[in-house]
Nucleic acid binder design. Structure first.
Length: 712
DNA sequence: AGAGTGGGCCTTTTT
DNA sequence: GGCCCACTCT
């Protein structure tokens, strides 16, 4: 090895970088430089002469994948061993890598290379239609809904336990219905094959099928990917773990990095045992540990250690900080969600004026809708932010409508796309759409479909709808498969009339479609474009890779995993919200929620503020208690601003909530200065709501441009 | 068979 | 406070 990394890394990390060939597992605590270690290991491999494109990096979320690839490019871009243009490690989520490979080998598993990818909504729709096919009464309440059916199928696939065991594990009460459940699931699978469409699970399952049944291809891919590195290994499920095993071979050069305390995806069949039993899959695996935390000040780690110590099912460990002491995390109680938003916004603006860069500030929450009040408040104040969570750009109804049109151009058999497009027309409902799909899909291509004798077989209202759609399809044919031209064809079709008739904000929606067209111009092939938008919503790819957004971040805790900020706000820490009430009923649910809380706390480097409102949710009159995680934590972990300011979490119980004087118990200092729900809009004649709305249009529009188009 | 309207229901997390 | 579903009318 010619480059010395010992200046940049500690001894624990260096050992991983210097690990030669063969499997190894790295058990790494939060903030111990996990990603850094992976990034440097990749650089070191390239330094040793390993061809970059024979390195495969697998991660769990898009966020983590792009973060890691950015850092790798920044690092190897600086090294004298700059790879040739076009030579870059392969990196991405399991799903996106599976997609890339299956595009080349689709025919080996009974698919065409132009297969479409169904997102969860498409999958549910298709499942619903499969259930109808096999005669299940969808109006009855006794049968699992399409969403629950999808959950069964998905869990069975990802945990590799099959459908029946999944039903038993997730909802034993549906076991008596298993015969019908299986019939519907089989019909669903058949429909996907007929439609040349894969759902998210198929991407992994078909990839697995390819590797396990097709020995020559397996050997080819094993030879191609000489080095495999997997981040967040604690979140892999059985199927993903099996994929790693097949791709690497028994003596493969696999580096698996993870932390059992941060396993937060068990709802997706993630299993901590995968990392703990890694040496069983790879008997020769070396084991390394990273235990020094470089990220957070000791006060934050005190809280983190205190939190996680309450979990029973874990490998006890204690994070040790190397940083000097600073201040303890603060806890704030607000009378309402609006006042909590106010408080957080105040503090954010204070940090900004103290010179903390916006990109070093994040607000985290358990569920996407918890950030609503804060979003409005930040918009009102003109603080720009990057929002992560909630409805994604490519999941918005009108964007999906436009994409469904493009799917027809790529794959005429795509049933879900046909049904979506057909039902947009006046005079075409569920039943007619089913019949028309049967007629259209057999034509074999869009060019033939527009010639199909549809009018002869339907009533005049339906015929009018079809004529309009046919006009749109014909102009799409003139786009000759160019993604951007196809989007424009949809915009110029009667679809915009539909938007204008249907929505008050049609102009905004058309603007979204314009942006979609601009973005589509980056692609030559429709299937590539569609796969990317389905698998990765952010798509802020920039040529330099390091132009990250300089904005305050609002994010769910799940999406924040692997990231870090100078200042972190953890909001809406209410009983029932975090830990999530429903998660508490699941097996191991409380411990998983606690790990999630631990992940949230350990994102912060220097400042951590935890807060919750006394009222929240749709019933603003119902009082909410603090999260049990606040109640159970050692009060000495928190900063006290005044002596009487220490929240008496320990003394709070849900049972006493009904009759106790809350403001005196734990809301005293804020309860008195609560204005009414309405606020005055800085002297403007607009009503507060109007003021916020007009502002929202501006900020939202601006945000969309930057966050999904990036700097292209 | 489609479209429109009133009532009941929640709200996890991601690919 | 909003969404989805079931029911009813055309």
């Amino acid at each position: 090895m010619s480059t010395d990394f010992s200046q940049e890394l500690n001894a624990e990390q260096l050992a991983v970088i210097r690990h030669g060939d063969g499997p190894c597992v790295v058990l790494a605590g939060a903030g111990s430089g996990k990603t850094r270690t992976i990034v440097y290991r990749v650089a070191s491999l390239i330094d040793r002469g390993v061809a970059p494109e024979s390195i495969l990096l697998l991660t769990f979320t898009n966020k983590a994948a792009s973060e890691m690839m950015d850092r790798i490019h920044a690092l190897i871009g600086d090294s004298p061993f700059l790879p040739q243009k076009g030579q870059s490690p392969w990196g991405g989520t399991f799903h996106s890598i599976a997609n890339r490979i299956l595009r080349s080998f689709a025919t080996h598993v009974g698919y065409q290379p132009n297969f479409t990818i169904l997102d969860e909504e498409d999958s549910r729709d298709l499942m619903k239609s499969a259930m109808r096919d096999v005669g299940i009464d969808l109006t009855g309440k006794r049968f699992p809904s399409p969403a629950v059916m999808r959950q069964f199928a998905s869990y069975g696939t990802n945990a590799m336990i099959g459908l029946e065991a999944a039903v038993q594990k997730l909802h034993p009460k549906f076991e008596p219905l298993y015969v019908d459940i299986a019939r519907a699931a089989n019909r669903y699978a058949a429909k996907k094959r007929e439609a040349n469409a894969m759902d998210f699970d198929d991407l992994l399952a078909k990839f697995h099928e390819l590797l396990s049944t097709d020995a020559p291809t397996r050997q080819l891919l094993q030879a191609k990917f000489r080095y495999i590195l997997v981040d967040e290994y604690q979140d892999t499920n059985a199927l993903q773990s099996a994929l790693v095993g097949l791709l690497a071979g028994p003596d493969g050069n696999v580096t698996a990095v993870g932390d059992d305390a941060q396993s937060i995806y068990s709802f997706r069949a993630a299993d901590v045992r995968n990392i703990l039993d890694f040496p069983k899959l790879f008997p020769k695996a070396a084991i390394y540990r990273l235990e020094t935390n470089y990220r957070s000040v000791p006060e934050i780690l005190d809280l983190a250690n205190d939190v996680i110590s309450r979990n029973v099912r874990q490998f006890p460990k204690e994070l040790k900080s190397v940083l000097p002491r600073h201040v303890r995390p603060a806890v704030k109680i607000a009378p309402s969600a609006n006042r909590e938003a106010d408080l957080v916004a105040d503090r954010i603006q204070q940090l900004l004026s103290d010179g903390v860069p916006p990109r070093e500030i994040a607000v985290l929450f358990r569920a996407a809708h918890h950030s609503q009040a804060l979003e409005f408040e930040l918009m009102r104040r003109g603080v720009e932010f990057d929002y992560r969570g909630g409805v994604r750009f490519f999941e918005r109804a009108h964007v999906k409508d436009a994409l469904a049109h493009l799917r027809l151009a790529a794959n005429i058999h795509d049933e879900a796309a046909w049904l979506r497009v057909l039902r947009l027309q006046q005079g075409i409902g569920e039943a007619t759409a089913d019949r028309m799909f049967a007629l259209l899909s057999v034509t074999g291509s869009l060019a033939h479909a527009v010639l199909a004798p549809v009018e002869e077989r339907c009533g005049s209202r339906t015929a009018r709808g079809w004529k309009e759609l046919r006009g749109a399809l014909e102009s799409m044919l003139r786009a000759k498969g160019d993604p951007a031209a196809l989007v424009r064809a949809v915009i110029d079709s009667s679809y915009s009339d539909y938007l204008e008739a249907e929505y008050t904000d049609a102009a905004d929606r058309l603007e979204d479609l314009e942006q979609l067209a601009v973005f589509a111009a980056n692609y030559k092939e429709v299937p590539d474009f569609l796969a990317d938008v389905t698998l990765d919503d952010r798509l802020h790819r920039s040529p330099n890779g390091d132009q990250r957004l300089s904005r305050v971040v609002l994010s769910t805790v799940h999406q924040a995993k692997g990231l870090e900020w100078e200042a972190v706000f953890l909001i809406h820490l209410n009983d029932g919200a975090f830990p999530n009430r429903r998660a508490m009923f699941e097996d191991g649910g409380l411990e998983e929620e606690r790990r999630l809380f631990y992940v949230a706390v350990t994102r912060a480097k220097r400042h951590l503020m935890l807060s919750y409102p006394l009222t929240a949710g749709y019933d603003a009159s119902a009082l909410q208690g603090p999260s049990i995680f606040l109640q159970e934590a050692d009060p000495n972990c928190f900063e006290r601003e005044r002596d009487d300011d220490v929240p008496a979490f320990g003394g709070f119980s849900r049972r006493s909530a009904g009759g106790s004087p809350f403001a005196d118990d734990w809301g005293g200092d804020f309860a008195s200065d609560e204005p009414t729900v309405e606020r005055s809009a800085d002297g403007e004649p607009l009503s507060p709501l109007e003021a916020v709305k007009s502002r929202m249009g501006k900020v939202r529009g601006d945000w969309k441009k930057k966050s999904f188009l990036g700097d292209v």
